[in-house]
């Protein structure tokens, strides 16, 4: 197990190094360079020169990368001239809200998708499975903003139950719960459709496997079969999938935040994209990537914890 963890950690580090090189590369592929991008096309030659020296942009690329990586490691991701704030402090402000939004919606998605997938797998090819599969396929085929709008129409326009924007997030707890309800639901439904599809097929595979046949031959009832012999085995493979979907979940949050005006990193990123605020763009990309890599790592460790074949190697 220790060997596995160490190897897996090493992989995560390698991945992060490559990502940082790619992101750094993009930074320097900008037309006109980073300085122009920050100062705008009308900046004077002198101002450009000053900033170039100040940022160390006249040094060799390798050195620049070293400096940038060193700074990034210390949490210094540059300065947003457009927002007049350091990227680090911006992220410090927006990131926690995202963890809340994404975290809560993921928890709900897992809590719904796993029993749903097991149920569908158990009832495979019956009417209820077909109906659920069809609904999930529709959710799965829907752009997340469309799903969000549907929710707004139902819960706001028609019934007036919930607010349609999350702009005023950050009030009382009661207010925040109301405000977050629709974004969380929108994000969650999309993920449920994805996870449950996978959980269903993992369950079907397991139900058809030899070891479940052995359990049936022992006289196990369906409840025992699912709880003792299917759940754990299907869960371990679904675990990895959940880790792998993190990039998609985070991408979905970008859309949902834009739709609901939720002041999270996605919204920050979107505004930065429209304003061509590159330090913010790159900082956010780096942070969401770290989040993904860490998420993958956790998922793989969870997989190892659930599956003795990996754990006891």
């Amino acid at each position: 197990m220790i060997g596995y963890v160490v190897r897996r950690l090493g992989q995560a580090v390698v991945v992060m190094v490559i990502v940082s090189i790619v992101v750094f590369g993009i930074l320097h592929l900008l037309p006109g360079g980073l300085v122009r991008a920050q100062l705008g096309p009308r900046a004077t030659a002198l101002a450009v020169h000053d900033l170039t020296v100040q940022e160390g942009l006249n040094k060799p690329l390798v050195v620049q990368y070293g400096i940038w990586a060193w700074h990034a490691l210390q949490g210094n991701l540059g300065f947003s001239y457009k927002l007049n704030q350091s990227v680090g402090s911006l992220l410090g402000e927006y990131l926690p809200r995202d963890l809340l939004l994404v975290g809560v919606s993921m928890l709900f998605a897992i809590a719904i998708a796993i029993p749903l997938g097991i149920w569908q797998g158990y009832r495979r090819n019956r009417v209820d499975d077909h109906v659920l599969s069809a609904v999930m396929l529709i959710f799965y085929s829907m752009p997340s903003f469309l799903l969000g709008v549907l929710l707004i129409v139902v819960f706001n326009l028609w019934t007036g139950l919930l607010p349609s924007t999350a702009t005023n997030f950050g009030g009382s707890v009661g207010n925040d719960v109301q405000v977050l309800a629709l974004p969380v639901l929108a994000l969650c439904l999309g993920n449920v459709s994805y996870f449950s599809r996978y959980m269903r097929s993992a369950t079907v595979d397991n139900l058809l496997s030899d070891h479940v046949r052995t359990a049936v031959a022992k006289g196990a009832a369906p409840r025992r079969l699912l709880a003792r012999h299917v759940l754990r085995n299907s869960l371990s493979s679904t675990m990895t999938l959940i880790g792998l979907t993190l990039p998609y979940v985070l991408s979905g949050s970008l859309i949902i935040e834009a739709l609901f005006n939720f002041p999270g990193m996605g919204l920050l990123f979107w505004n930065a994209a429209q304003a061509r605020d590159f330090p913010v763009l790159l900082g956010v990309v780096l942070v969401v990537t770290v989040a993904t890599v860490v998420g993958n790592l956790l998922a793989d460790l969870g997989y190892a914890a659930l599956d003795p074949r990996v754990r006891l190697k």
Binding site: H211, T214, A215, R228, D307, R309
Partner: peptide, 10 residues
């Protein structure tokens, strides 16, 4: 096949 016939996680 005794490998696949036993539950690998129990």
């Amino acid at each position: 096949d005794p490998m696949t016939s036993l539950n690998p996680t129990t």
